[in-house]
């Protein structure tokens, strides 16, 4: 069984202060938490002879996230690293990632992704990759288990818990809370830097310059600003009158209509 694991490196938003209104650059980065759950799931399902291949498109520093995957049990890794990939939107990202899969690892059985990236939080890359690879998908998966010749995937959708039995050639996007962190094996941990990590550029995959990165993107960020969702609210003092309680009960009962 060949599992491809798509991982993203994200700025560590829990430490980088953004108080000055600037998006941190060159600050500490981490492996996207939900991707780490996908990695756990992949290594949990892996038996003798199976292969888990981590794939990341990102700047040179993203190499660290791939090493982390190798330390935690991935067998090989690809790093899509080229200045021409910079500025990719979800479309360009999905296009580039699926190009790699089709060119180099088209005999995959499963593709595992995180459901969302902690920085962009679009949650669209997995779905677009599934479409571009022409495989079905199960998103928002919170539990995975091995079946016979299949993978069992649990998800919640619109108030229902669904279980899928996925035969090979499917994509699973894994959400927070999927399975449990497993302790890495000592040999994986020690051998990580000796495992194969292939760096690929745009030319290695014969992608046109205007098909990737900022140029190949279909959406453009026009501006970024601080959240200012202030509403014109009514201010009441609890001490004043019983007016506060009246107001609350009235809107609660009318459900805000």
């Amino acid at each position: 069984m060949k599992i491809l694991l798509m991982v993203k490196q994200v700025p560590d938003v829990s430490v980088s202060g953004m108080e000055d209104g600037k998006v941190p650059r060159g600050g500490p980065s981490v492996l996207n938490p939900q991707c780490e759950y996908a990695l756990d799931a992949a290594t949990l399902l892996k038996s003798e002879g199976d292969e888990v291949i981590a794939i990341c498109m990102g700047p040179p520093s993203a190499r660290e996230s791939l090493f982390r995957c190798l330390e935690l049990g991935a067998d090989r890794a690809y790093h899509l690293c080229d200045p021409d990939f910079a500025g990719s939107d979800v479309w360009a990202t999905a296009k580039t990632l699926s190009r790699l899969v089709l060119e180099r690892e088209s005999d995959f059985d499963y593709v595992f992704c995180g459901q969302k990236a902690a920085d962009s939080e679009t949650g669209q890359v997995p779905t677009m990759v599934a479409e571009l690879l022409g495989v079905p998908q199960v998103g928002a998966c919170y539990r995975l288990a091995k079946g016979t010749g299949s993978v069992h995937a649990w998800r919640e959708r619109s108030g229902r818990i669904e279980r899928y039995e996925l035969g090979p050639r499917a994509l699973v996007a894994v959400e927070r809370g999927c399975n449990v962190h497993r302790l890495p094996s000592v040999s994986d941990f020690l051998n990580a830097r000796r495992k194969e990590l292939t760096v690929l550029t745009r030319q290695d995959l014969s992608i046109n310059r205007d098909e990737c990165g900022l140029k190949g993107s279909h959406t453009v960020v026009r501006n970024i600003h601080f959240l200012s969702s202030s509403r014109e609210g009514i201010k009441l003092h609890l001490d004043d009158t019983s007016c506060a309680i009246d107001t609350v009960l009235r809107s609660v009962r009318r459900r805000g209509q």
Binding site: M18, T219, V221, R222, I224, F226, L227
Partner: peptide, 16 residues
């Protein structure tokens, strides 16, 4: 849409 964990808002346009 919100981005960076809701700390910032981004305004995006599409060219398709």
């Amino acid at each position: 849409r919100p981005t960076f964990g809701g700390k910032l808002m981004a305004t995006i346009i599409s060219n398709t």
